[in-house]
Nucleic acid binder design. Structure first.
Length: 602
RNA sequence: GCCCCCGUAGCUCAGAGGAUAGAGCAGAGGUUUCCUAAACCUUUGGCCGCAGGUUCAACUCCUGCCGGGGGUACCA
């Protein structure tokens, strides 16, 4: 969607450049590099709001013109303001030369009217766009291994993926969310061996995932002392892959129990997948990929295994088949890529997977690239450039990586339960008359946990910290939710009777101005979140918005009393409530994009 | 060994060529006859790991070093 305010600023600047160039009597065409369209994109939002609404850095251009940027800026601003003076409908803009930055300031009531009307007219559609119209995007996320508990470590992929899902959907993409369950591979051979050796039907029934996890940890412990276990595990997986009835039956049992358990977790988190196609789904699709790679002449046999050598790209070889003929993780991912390309014709495929698998994805993507090169697939049809590994850091505990193998894992359910009961205690303390306490405690507790996970740039490792996750004050999920509840409360208190013309000049305090600027920025923030595949962008924006609104809410007048939003002054109250309505809309939508609920009371 | 990522306030983290390095937590002090104090205000706290280099401009880019983490073929 085109932003007319921004476009006007760009137009004026382009015109001013024209005048400036004429005055400089330059006839070098390469100097006329600034056209309205380019300027539109070149306008930045200054980091410091004191610097206005847009900033145009002039350093590059000054260099080309061999001029001092400060002097150039001064001349430019003179002409810009000359143009404004000559047109009545430009009266809302002002240009300032500050050092080498050409800053644009939009009159606040114009910005307020522009922004609040847009939000009012579109409600939750504000910030949406048709950027992704007609394009589909596949997001592979969460993807836990079955027969293992859902640890806090798995939350990252789930939370980031879910947020990216919602963000892209808002931008008009057709989004396909896939839970690529780890339900195939040697580990299931190991599980089968472990269960046959030490398993117990009754224990399994009582607490399936816990029991399977114990077996898993025990297997890895004993495996260290007893090497033959490793071979037994591999043999069992080979049998499974070859369709051995007993092995398949056991595997199916593990899988059914696990899926039921995972579904409970996803329901609590409010996460939805379009497909739960795990690795086993590609079981009958791997031969085709291997054939294609062989025909393309990319494979070779090394130490008995079938590989695609990648040494010339500085990568370890990609293994397609083990020496015993069984397939590997990479084989299934390759089959998955081809299947997804065929089925969904994706514009992009995102793999939201831990940074520890960086090399794996480099290998797999490279193999696809080589295959397409060998098959002479034209570039515009090629899928290799559309594959993106959205990587994120580890969750560590006491500075050690959590590992299901070692057994130092924290169960997500435990974290959620603790957070929810803490939220409930807080409600009972602050707002005991609240209806549906359990439901709201759920929303707050779970929101706090998801938020804690999203509140760091994704590629950083994060130390799991109970205090941080269970903290509801400061930069937290509950803080955002609380602000939203407060906004909702204002709307409940103020029942508007009839529509009136809003007088936007009444929103003139610096605190209100800041809120309006932030609301104006929201659509850009959503796009940036999608471009960078980084939900944190939304997180930090919402924190800023909440903080800015809370400052409005508790602003004091000259006598040191709170200047209330709802007052006897009807016109003033109307204007302020228009702002409240807009902030609530954006807050609500922003929380949704992160995967958090937005209770109206708490 | 080789390759990759990360070192910013006591703690957890923003800033990713540009304007005076910012938040939250923790510490100190304050604000409520209640539009939700899960909030707000004031305040303490920095050799941006170290050393060079590139640039009009470096926390940001390049090189080296130190410290932490990860990957490195039949696990996923």
């Amino acid at each position: 969607m085109k932003d007319t305010l921004r476009q006007t600023a760009a137009d004026i600047t382009a015109e001013a450049f024209g005048l400036l160039m004429a005055d400089l009597k330059t006839d070098r065409p390469e100097l006329y590099i600034f056209h309205p369209e380019q300027l539109y994109d070149k306008l930045e939002i200054p980091k410091d709001p004191k610097m206005g609404n847009y900033a145009l850095p002039l350093f590059d251009l000054a260099k080309i013109l061999k001029q001092n940027p400060i002097a150039l800026n001064k001349q430019l601003a003179e002409r810009q303001n000359l143009i404004i003076g000559a047109h009545d409908n430009y009266a809302h803009l002002k240009f300032e030369a500050v050092g080498g930055f050409n800053n644009t300031r939009i009159r606040i009531e114009t910005l307020a009217q522009f922004t609040l009307r847009q939000i009012g007219n579109n409600a939750r559609e504000y910030g949406s766009s048709d950027l992704g119209k007609g394009k589909s995007i596949v997001i592979d996320f969460s993807s836990p291994n079955i027969a293992k508990p859902f640890g806090v470590g798995h939350l990252r992929s789930t939370a980031i993926g879910n947020s990216l899902y919602r963000i892209h959907k808002k931008l008009g993409y057709t989004v396909i969310g896939i839970n690529h369950l780890g339900d195939w591979g040697t580990q299931f051979g190991k599980m089968i061996v472990a269960y046959r050796k030490w398993g117990d039907e009754r224990l399994l029934m009582a607490d399936p995932v816990r029991n399977l996890y114990d077996l898993y940890v025990r297997f890895h412990k004993e495996e260290k002392e007893n090497q033959t276990l490793t071979d037994e595990g591999r043999e069992a997986f080979k049998a499974l892959e070859d369709g051995d009835d007993a092995a398949v039956a056991l595997w199916q049992k593990f899988k059914d129990y696990s899926l039921a358990y995972f579904q409970k977790v996803y329901d609590r988190l409010g996460v939805h997948f379009d497909y739960n196609t795990g690795e086993s789904f590609y079981n009958d699709k791997m031969n085709a990929v291997i054939d294609r790679l062989q025909k393309a002449g990319l494979t070779e046999i090394s130490e008995g295994a079938l590989i695609v050598p990648l040494a010339e790209f500085g990568l370890p070889a990609c293994l397609l088949r083990r020496a015993d003929g069984a397939t590997l993780y990479a084989t299934r991912d390759l089959a998955g890529i081809l299947y997804r390309a065929e089925s969904y014709h994706f514009e992009k495929a995102l793999y939201v997977v831990n940074t520890g698998q960086r090399d794996h994805f480099k290998q797999v993507f490279k193999v696809i690239e080589l295959l397409e090169k060998a098959e002479m697939v034209p570039l515009e049809k090629a899928i290799a450039p559309r594959l993106v590994h959205v990587e994120f850091g580890w969750i560590k505990f006491a500075d050690a990586v959590m590992s299901t193998r070692v057994g130092n894992i924290i169960f997500l359910e435990e974290v959620l339960d603790k957070a929810v009961s803490l939220a409930k205690a807080k409600i009972l303390e602050k707002n005991p008359d609240l209806k549906e306490i359990d439901k709201i405690a759920d929303q707050i507790g779970i929101g706090a946990v998801i938020f804690a996970d999203l509140s760091t740039r994704k590629e950083k490792d994060v130390n799991f910290d109970w205090d941080k996750v269970l903290n509801f004050e400061g930069e937290t999920g509950p803080y955002l939710q609380y602000t939203h509840a407060r906004l909702s409360s204002l709307l409940r208190h103020y029942a508007k009777e009839k529509p009136t013309e809003i007088n936007y000049t009444l929103l003139a305090h610096a605190e209100e101005e800041r809120v309006i600027e932030l609301l104006y920025k929201f659509p850009l923030v959503v796009e940036e979140g999608a471009d960078s595949c980084e939900p944190y962008i939304i997180v930090s924006y919402l924190l800023e918005l909440a903080s800015a609104f809370n400052k409005v809410y508790q602003r004091k007048d000259n006598q040191g009393r709170i200047d209330k939003i709802i007052s006897d002054n009807f016109e003033l109250t109307e204007a302020r409530m228009a702002l409240v309505r807009a902030v609530r809309t954006v807050m609500n939508e922003g929380l949704y994009l992160l995967g958090l609920e937005a209770p109206n009371e708490m």
